[in-house]
Amino acid sequence: MDIEYFLELFFSGLTRGSIYALIALGYTMVYGIIQLINFAHGEIYMIGAFVALIVAGVCTIYGLSGFAILILAAAIAIMYAAAYGYTLEKIAYRPLRGSPRLSPLISAIGMSIFLQNYVLLAQTPDYLPFPRLIPDFSFMDPVAHIIGSAELVILVTTLVTMVLLTLLIKKTRVGKAMRATQQDLSMARLVGVNVDRVISLTFVIGSVLAAIGGVLVASYIGQVNFYIGFLAGVKAFTAAVLGGIGSIPGAVLGGLIIGWSESFAAGYFSSDYEDILTFVLLVVILIVRPAGILGKVRKQKV
């Protein structure tokens, strides 16, 4: 077996996987708190990428370059996505709180279709080229055939993001409020947590992560389109279910497994098989462990 080829696939899988993980975190955090699958989450990712594209376009006219644009584009994309996520929850899900579980789910699918078509009409149905914002680092030259500069930037960014997220959830007051709400929503209200605010915040955090993912992918793959949120959303959702929906480490693990399975399937068999392997894995795991790899079946003590 060619070890270099293996490593190349390993790192490309790791890169894809960490992006899936970023998006999957949004699904899993929202599900953990209000048991809703936010089908419009993939669209937030797509909107993040589009905003970054627009900002990058404007910046290029003014002659900024490379990394500066990337940071600026990402910052503005994050703000936009956060605003979209916040508004989405407020208008599409909050009014349906307390209604049967199917209603917000249908609302989520509706928002997904609406946002796709909104971008389709407001922008274009075509694929748009996304500028290469991540420069090639010279210190990466010796290993460039195994792991590229863009991949390195993506890996470092997702790693830092996840560490920050973990600290937020474990150490801060809002993080504790989020965990309490996830574990027992009405008990959280009884100790004085403003649950509506926690839910809004969860959507905002999920959207920020999705936007980071969107910007990174767009500059890695090099093109965006109104439909990119759909497949990325489905894959990330699969990652969340695979890892155990509601579980944060599960979302990361699920994302990585899917990233690797795609990358190795494409590398050793054929790229026709990359999606198939992902969903075969999902089916197998759901048969063996219906709650997902790290999902918990909660037993109640009486």
Partner: peptide, 18 residues
Amino acid sequence: RIFPDMTVLENLEMGAFL
């Protein structure tokens, strides 16, 4: 209605949330 995945100390801290 103890928060099951929080430690005893964290549960107590949640009581003093406000």
